[in-house]
Amino acid sequence: MLPSASRMRRGEDFADAIRRGRRAGRPTLVVHFNAHEEAGGPPLVGFVVSKAVGGAVVRNRVKRRLRHLMRSRVESLPRGSLLVVRANPPAASARSEHLAAELDVALDRLLRRRGSGPRTPTDGRS
């Protein structure tokens, strides 16, 4: 799924991305992004899926789907950046195509604000 080196594990990284980063919200998810140009490591991606989304099985399914979607998008993030994807309750019943489209819109909005230019969709759509 998502490369091990790109998985966010420390609570400080989650807090840094959420508190100091910019965010883009969609009905099914909210993306928090904080770019650290001075850090040279790989981009770190974390996921937050609360109990409001559903029970443990539903939450784990949503996390797996989001990790799978981020696998092909992580290389478009700047090195050293922090990204947290927070699932909203509608993510539990959303189709994967819909989640992918909303994730692309949110990432595009955040990366364009940063000045990286427009992204091209990675799911084959024009």
Rank of each mutant, 00 (worst) to 15 (best):
M1H: 00
P3Q: 06
P3F: 00
S4E: 12
R7S: 08
R9K: 15
R9L: 15
R9T: 15
R10Y: 14
R10M: 13
E12C: 12
E12N: 00
D13G: 10
D13L: 09
D13S: 13
F14Y: 07
A15E: 11
A17C: 11
I18G: 04
R19D: 02
R20P: 13
G21Q: 03
R22M: 10
R22C: 08
A24Y: 04
A24F: 02
G25P: 02
G25A: 12
G25S: 14
R26I: 06
R26E: 10
P27M: 13
V30N: 08
V30A: 02
V30I: 15
V31M: 05
H32W: 02
H32D: 04
H32N: 09
F33I: 06
F33T: 00
F33L: 15
F33A: 03
N34G: 06
A35S: 10
H36I: 01
E38G: 07
E38W: 11
A39P: 03
P43A: 08
L44R: 13
V45K: 03
V45H: 05
G46C: 10
G46Q: 13
V49G: 01
V49C: 02
S50Y: 05
K51Y: 09
K51C: 12
A52Q: 14
A52S: 14
A52K: 15
V53K: 06
V53F: 00
G54T: 09
G54W: 11
G55T: 08
G55P: 11
A56M: 03
A56S: 10
V58G: 05
R59N: 12
R59F: 05
R59G: 03
R61K: 11
V62S: 05
R64D: 05
R65I: 01
R67I: 08
H68A: 15
L69T: 00
M70I: 11
M70L: 10
R71V: 03
S72T: 15
V74D: 04
S76E: 12
S76P: 05
L77S: 10
L77M: 09
P78R: 09
G80C: 01
S81T: 05
S81L: 08
L82I: 08
L82M: 09
V84K: 07
V84Q: 09
V84C: 08
V85I: 10
N88T: 02
P90V: 04
A91Y: 04
A91G: 00
A92H: 12
A92V: 08
A94C: 04
A94F: 04
R95K: 07
S96T: 14
E97N: 12
H98T: 12
L99P: 01
A100W: 05
A100I: 15
A101I: 02
A101P: 10
A101W: 10
A101M: 13
E102G: 05
L103S: 00
L103P: 02
D104H: 07
D104K: 03
L107A: 01
L107F: 04
D108V: 03
D108M: 06
D108L: 07
R109Y: 03
L110I: 02
L110Y: 06
L111Y: 03
R113N: 12
R114W: 06
S116H: 04
S116Q: 11
S116T: 03
G117M: 01
G117I: 00
P118E: 12
T120G: 07
T120E: 08
D123Q: 14
D123M: 13
R125F: 07
R125W: 01
S126V: 10
S126Y: 09
S126G: 11
S126P: 15
